[in-house]
């Protein structure tokens, strides 16, 4: 079954006097449990495609379906609900909430979901342990290294077991060791929980783990390699 289906997506940005086509008639279908890497040079459209799949951006035209629901015509509130329950985001710049501790950042989404405090506490402890941050739950983001912050961001993205995780350059600010550990964590979650991963990256190590590699250029998909097939 399709986790994501995009039909004829178009998105144009205005930059100065120029119109830049970030998405140019993009069609893509991603099945549940897939591990997809979107690869493109800067400005190739991979972040815009991720944002479109996550319902973060407004498209010029086209249809986006996530978990069987058409999301491009949803209201802001409906999109927020979808993201809250079904989608986990991992950003390049970690994007933790600075005034909350690591544990509170992880619990944030669950708390918004209305998960009871006891259950939240157990889940957050377990996920922090799983990402190798056991015992660091009371630290605020400013007191953690980049790698630790990214692990917290990953823990936050997956703690409520979303069916889809969208990651935008998750290893860009990490050293090679931490990057490797993070990607192994993604791969493990993909294998054990069947979580669908869509990762925008140009990191070769990440691409090595991908089951499917989608290459983009100037807002168009130029290559789509299913490694399982080959």
């Amino acid at each position: 079954m399709s986790a994501v289906r995009c039909i004829d997506l178009c998105k144009t940005y205005r930059q100065g006097d120029q119109d830049i086509k970030a998405l140019d008639h993009v069609d893509i279908e991603i099945v549940e449990g897939d591990f997809v890497c979107l690869s493109a040079p800067s400005g190739g459209g991979k972040t815009t495609l991720l944002n479109a799949i996550g319902g973060l951006d407004i498209l010029d035209s086209g249809e986006v379906w996530v978990a069987g629901q058409r999301i491009d015509c949803m209201s802001k509130g409906e999109l927020a609900g979808l993201r809250l329950k079904q989608i986990g985001f991992v950003f390049q710049a970690y994007n933790l909430i600075p005034v909350l501790t690591a544990r509170e950042n992880v619990e944030f989404v669950m708390q918004v979901q209305g998960v009871p405090a006891d259950e939240r506490g157990c889940k957050s402890e377990a996920i922090l342990e799983e990402v190798g941050l056991g015992g660091l739950g009371d630290r605020r983001p400013a007191e953690m290294s980049g790698g630790q912050q990214q692990r917290v961001a990953v823990a936050r993205a997956i703690v409520s077991r979303p069916t889809l995780v969208l990651a935008d350059e998750p290893t860009a600010n990490l050293d090679s060791k931490t990057s490797g550990e993070l990607i192994e964590l993604f791969a493990e979650l993909n294998e054990t929980h069947g979580t669908t991963f869509v990762i925008a990256t140009h990191d070769q190590r990440v691409m090595a783990y991908a089951k499917r590699l989608v290459k983009m250029l100037d807002g168009r998909i130029v290559d789509d390699i299913d490694k399982r097939a080959g």
């Binding site: 973060l56 509130g77 927020a80 979808l82 993201r83 809250l84 989608i87 985001f89 909430i97 936050r156």
Partner: peptide, 15 residues
Amino acid sequence: YEFGIVMSLGLTPGR
């Protein structure tokens, strides 16, 4: 920027 982040995590603009 932070508001953009928490919205992407699923917080509604109303909240």
